[in-house]
């Protein structure tokens, strides 16, 4: 059995980084970044945070790479879901729906 055991400094510094990024994502709303860059910045910070959690708290970094592939596939299929739906809803004729 050779399971990875995370060191204390790793876990604490990942948590520290997550706290700093949480502060950052709030702080960027104090300066007015024009659309659509404010959304891009917010999502980028969230993706970095989620990646840190997945790699170092969920141990994907040390795991069998197959688990990372499985997880990334869920992101891929979510992207397909979003893009194909938007191809419909963004290009409807007759203006916005009433709901």
């Amino acid at each position: 059995m050779s399971h990875h055991i995370s060191t204390l400094p790793t876990l604490l510094s990942v948590a520290g980084a997550l706290l700093v990024l949480t502060f950052l994502t709030v702080a960027v709303t104090w300066i007015n970044i024009p659309e659509p860059f404010n959304v891009i910045v917010a999502i980028t910070i969230a993706v970095v945070k989620a990646t840190a959690v997945a790699m170092f708290f969920m141990n994907l970094y040390w795991d069998s790479k197959f688990n990372s592939v499985v997880f990334l596939l869920s992101i891929l299929f979510l992207t397909i879901f979003v893009v194909i739906t938007l191809l419909d809803t963004l290009f409807r004729e007759g203006g916005l729906p009433v709901y």
């Binding site: 994502t25 959690v53 708290f57 969920m58």
Partner: peptide
């Protein structure tokens, strides 16, 4: 951790 990740997106 997944519950945490989902909140990381919900918050912003």
């Amino acid at each position: 951790h997944l519950v945490d990740i989902i909140w990381i997106f919900l918050f912003p």
